[in-house]
Amino acid sequence: MTILSTERSLFFLLIALLTLPPAILLAGEHGYSAMSLLSLLRGDTTSISDMDYLVLTELRLPRLFAGLLVGAALGCAGCLLQRMTANPLASPGLLGLNQGAALGLVCLIISPLPFLPLYAFIAALSGAFLAMVLVFGVVRITTGAIAAENLLLFGALLSTLFGALTTVALILDQHALDAIRFWLAGSLSLIERSQIGPLAALVLTGLILAVFSTRSLQLLESGHDTARGLGANPRTILIMVSAIILILTATSVAVSGPILFIGLIVPHLARLWIGERILDQLLGSTLLGALLLPLADFAVFLLDSDDRIPPGVALAILGVPWFMWLVKRRYRNQ
């Protein structure tokens, strides 16, 4: 492996992130020409047709920004979760947090309340919270420790339960079938421009909190006793980090549905390329997540211009072999 210094790798990532949006806008058969985009930047709207202008401002750009933000949020949440549980197999998707948030949205859809962004966020947050409390609480109480295998298996059980509840809701009332299917698959295609502001605010808050929490996490990793000796309360740290993970996960699920595997893959790539230190891995995960999701979204959009395939599928095809490889490597020598 080539050895780059951490700062240089992060710098390269940042450059990649800055070049990604124009690259995605230019590529593909629906792409824009570089000249017209440049003249748009100068405030000249005559260079492209009205329709193209609308598509750019109402659809492409909001979707791109949503992809960047959701990807960053999920990458960051995945990294925090893996460091907090000291386990490379953990991710919000595999522990059932994403599906819990999606179940919250499904409840909101079949309830008489309107599907407003604020309600959606609250519903997703409570669903994810419920899933997290259930998974961690039950595993902790019943096994006395938070072992990764048990977290994963229990997360899988919980996802099955959520799936069953959704199917029952569907059998009893088919009116919401379409909406429920959409919110369970995870997609960026219904993003509206007005959603970007609140999404950005929440995700950025979560990211900043995450950066500040790295010091406490580091204390935690040096052992609970050491942390206590240094005047920190391990329980408070755990609760704080969990809250950040929940906010990031719920925010992203509330706008895009559950997008799995990003929270699993990205922290590993970040550790390999950027570094082992928590802050480095966290920044790397955030940037990589922001890169990967818009790319996956763009890839499925190229494959199917009717925009029916959720980006989560592309990520699962990428992420599952990765996960299996991790499992195999982890257990090969035992």
């Binding site: 609308l54 109402e58 295609s189 219904l190 925009d307």
Partner: peptide, 9 residues
């Protein structure tokens, strides 16, 4: 039937 998701269509 044909499904559409995006108003650009």
């Amino acid at each position: 039937a044909r499904r559409l998701r995006s108003p650009e269509q």
